[in-house]
Design a binder for these strands. Structure first.
Lengths: 315, 315
DNA sequence: CGGAGTTGAGTTACCGGTAACGTAGGACTA
DNA sequence: TAGTCCTACGTTACCGGTAACTCAACTCCG
């Protein structure tokens, strides 16, 4: 008991005793068993479960980096959960990770299975839903309004005089956020009197190559499309390369718009029309709010990090 | 006790009892406390600590994805550790994560602090060192020989007739592997009678933009360089874009070589000279070997996944 | 039909911390 | 000098599972 007090620096021991204890710690190479501590007090671990759809998407690795950096600086650890864009996978992961008594959870997306929601509520631990802003979160939400970002892009393209619109995305739709963007985009086009002639949903991950062949597919089936909005920058860059290879001029023959502003944009010889989002900030803010709740403070339930439309040379 | 037996499907109970127990489980919404299980038997958790230098580097996110997918399919979870390329950070993380009784560890790199090695040895749990192959690992090693890959690139470039060589890398050198590549490259050049006129080490992350301005720096200080080997493909692609912007012809005026074959290569209008490495495979194999050891089987101590030099159009 | 073996279920103790409480002995006060 | 308080340290019990053991009831067989 005295040793326990010394190691926790709780006070109630003499300097002489402290030295004796520390000497024994040194001699035995003693490492505390944190499992026992958690068990004894029915406390939480210092684990924070973080679910993301997949790691292939650069956007989420930035979010994850923001989360982990912040957590580590407050002596917490990230337990990873890759949901593969499947709510069922997420539910299984939530059940498993909860049995390990995490200090909190960060989930990507606002959609969960009913049982997952029930598990989360009865676990009653701090929770942040990130990415697509949830105005009535289970506990807390950090992200941006994807519908609005799609809507703004639609309006911007309309203002540039386009009338026939296309969209290319994939079924790897992180937490339905890309679908929200598409819905916003479609709504803007409808409101503005344009025509969304074709929307393509590839069964692939949203990377460079799907952007490349997705553009080929879309243009061959609908050559009159004037501008294409892509699920993200990587796909848009793939599209630009396809157009260059086919001698299709941008923006004279076709307009290209991406989403997310990824690092590669900094070295491209053209300025991609895109939507800038501070991914790292989403992760940091989510972790910050979670840590506040964990330490018993209050944190804002809804944090909108916003977005910024970047008009480039590609439309 | 009977409930415990039912839930573990251990046998030694009647069907009638099983149903009674399961009904109570349902009624109470009972979730087992895995912490107690670990504590009771002085067992391990199902956590596997995975340390990687940083998440900004696409290469490691692929490795991590390979690891996590495999672990999840065997009911284990990844506990992330970002070491920021600092052995001290790694040591701190190892100490923390060990106190949570992980089932095993996967560490990127073969270099560790003496105290870290001591902690790892006394923890006596399955351990895989990945990335730069360690022929005498603490426990197991999965990766490739980075020195050899650099050496092969050097020899290949010599065979193309180059005589004045450059190198551009960064101080974010994941587990010293890039330095091994540089050493191999330098050795090949020396052996072949070429000249490594300049090696640049930028204080930045090895991304597109550092490749861009690193090339500018190197060429302005040493305009006679004939070919440049980059730390990775992203930097090499940044270099290609710099050359395009400056109307420097590739490969006529300068040769460019990358390393790692990243996804963007698939849509480039040219074929980048690079070294192909199966990053996902490294992660999968590391997790596989670790899980074998965890379940009490034996696994090979050293697994070389190899590499393949890809002669492209850029030299 | 009695003894041996089997089956299903209960009892006890333990893992390693820590909360809560107990207590000896010194200091301080009225 | 007796009573009170404080400090430093010790004792006990408990968290929730499970290993190891016990035991009653039933089965099986010569």
């Amino acid at each position: 008991m005295t040793a326990s007090r010394v190691l926790r620096e709780e006070g109630g021991y003499s300097e002489k005793t402290r030295l004796t204890v520390m000497a024994e710690v040194e001699r035995l190479g003693y490492l505390p068993n944190r499992i026992a501590t958690v068990f004894s007090g029915d406390r939480s671990t210092t684990f924070v479960g973080v679910s993301i759809p997949d790691l292939g998407n650069e956007v989420f690795t930035h979010v994850l980096e923001g989360i982990d950096r912040k957590l580590v600086s407050f002596n917490h650890q990230t337990v990873l959960g890759m949901t593969q864009h499947e709510l069922g996978e997420e539910e299984n992961w939530i059940e498993t990770v909860l049995s390990w008594k995490p200090a909190g959870l960060i989930l990507t997306g606002r959609a969960h299975t009913p049982r997952a929601v029930q598990l989360l509520q009865s676990a009653n631990i701090p929770l942040v839903e990130i990415w697509d802003l949830n105005s009535s979160p289970i506990d807390m939400s950090v992200g941006l309004n994807h519908f609005d970002s799609g809507y703004d892009m639609g309006r911007f393209l309309l203002s540039k005089g386009y009338a026939r619109f296309g969209y290319v995305g994939t079924s790897h739709d992180a937490a339905n956020a890309a679908t929200s963007r598409l819905n916003g985009y479609a709504k803007a086009i409808e409101d503005g009197g344009g025509k969304l002639t074709r929307q393509l949903c590839l069964n692939d991950i949203p990377g460079f190559y799907p952007g490349f062949y997705g553009t080929e597919q879309l243009l061959s089936s609908d050559p009159d499309v004037e501008v294409i909005f892509f699920q993200n920058d990587n796909m848009a860059i793939g599209a630009v390369h396809f157009c260059q290879a086919q001698n299709i001029r941008i923006p004279e023959d076709i307009g290209i718009a991406g989403w997310g502003e990824l690092p590669i944009a900094s070295v491209l010889p053209y300025r991609l029309t895109t939507v800038q989002v501070n991914h790292l900030r989403i992760g940091q803010l989510a972790a910050e709010n979670l840590l506040l709740k964990i330490s018993g403070d209050t944190a804002s339930a809804v944090s909108d990090v916003g977005f910024r439309l970047v008009p480039g040379d590609t439309v």
